[in-house]
Design a protein around this nucleic acid. Structure first.
Lengths: 200, 200
DNA sequence: AGTAACTCGTACACCGGTGTTCGACAAGTT
DNA sequence: AACTTGTCGAACACCGGTGTACGAGTTACT
């Protein structure tokens, strides 16, 4: 027994490489969801075998990459002020969120074909919860509709953000416009029937 | 000269098989976008070789399947009455559309990885145009917002429908609810800022 | 009935990706 | 300096999918 020596402590060298692989992973998979292990290893400036030394399979790699990306995104989102008028707060949240979504769009596609859906959802739990609470507060204050389930409203916001990302990627809308389009659409969509849609 | 004999007229037998392959194609690809040629052939009750006799490559097959599915959907949509109050008309159109979208969702995913994007868009031109005209009419009559581009509104509708399909497929919402959710969301999203969101 | 069109199964070559093994070598830890 | 831990490249077996070739057997047209 003595000191719980379960951790032989990875060598500094190895840690650097793991980080490089993760970086390369998010980079490659963000451009092509079907990027091969070889490509990623090469982009990381590392041998393919070395990569397998750290990640037992492609699936494990994708999982790790996704997890890190979401964790980072979650950290960014924590900085957003969600107090005050829920509509204003939502706008702020969207402004920060949609770019994250845009970047990791292709990565998510990669994950969907390798990582089990349950795992993906659990990874998304953090960010998800944040939006959900905000929307619930807005509903309680009467500025967001209650005739549709909260979860549907959350989903709707996701659809629109993901869709906007695709439109940008296809060159059909200007990235600078996206934020305004998304919040304009979401704010209107969340307005309770019978009430006026807020201006801009 | 004489009778334009460019068509040796396929044998009846062959036509039946082609139809069976197309049917099996839409069926298989709707469940798994990565369905192999072998699977499809088997589902059609046909040898793999026979399939290759009619479609030179997997890509050509997917293209044909998608084209037929869209053409059929388009025919269904033509029956929808788009006159009268644009909001009511939109509700009707959604009611007919979203189920089509739901069915061919996975098929579209299949196409996206094999058929060039330009081709996909041109296939979608028909249905797309229909929604677009309706929205434009609504904008002209002042019941739909004009502060966002028409194309964005069209896209938004698509996002929400596709998203709803995913939610159903994941078992998170009841198929019977979907139609109401989608039109409720879209109608609110299309309402001009400063005006009241229509009830139900 | 005769002929052309079509189908079928098996078998094959090919490709690209995955995951593993090996032995030589460098880099870090103590 | 000694030793453990990683790294590297090449080579390999394996898998599943695509597309082709062949030859024998059926099915539809006229």
């Amino acid at each position: 027994m003595a000191t719980t020596q379960t951790k032989p402590a990875k060598r500094a060298d190895a840690q650097r490489n793991i980080a490089a692989i993760l970086d390369a992973g998010v980079h490659c998979l963000s451009q092509n969801p079907d990027a091969s292990v070889g490509e990623i290893a090469q982009a990381a400036g590392v041998g393919r075998v070395t990569l397998y030394g750290h990640f037992p399979s492609r699936a494990a790699l994708v999982d790790a990459v996704l997890a890190r990306a979401i964790e980072e995104g979650n950290a960014v989102l924590e900085a957003v002020d969600l107090s005050g008028d829920p509509r204003k707060a939502l706008t702020r949240l969207i402004e920060s969120s949609w770019q994250l979504v845009n970047r990791s769009r292709s990565l998510l596609a990669a994950a969907q074909s390798t990582v089990p859906p349950a795992r993906i959802r659990s990874l998304h739990a953090g960010p998800m919860e944040r939006v959900e609470h905000l929307i619930e507060r807005g509903q309680a204050e009467g500025v967001f509709r209650t005739d549709l389930p909260t979860t549907w409203l959350v989903s709707t916001l996701q659809f629109v953000m993901h869709g906007a990302a695709e439109e940008i990627n296809a060159g059909r809308i200007d990235p600078d416009d996206a934020g305004g389009f998304i919040s304009g659409t979401a704010l209107a969509a969340f307005t309770p029937p019978g009430r006026r849609v807020p201006k801009t």
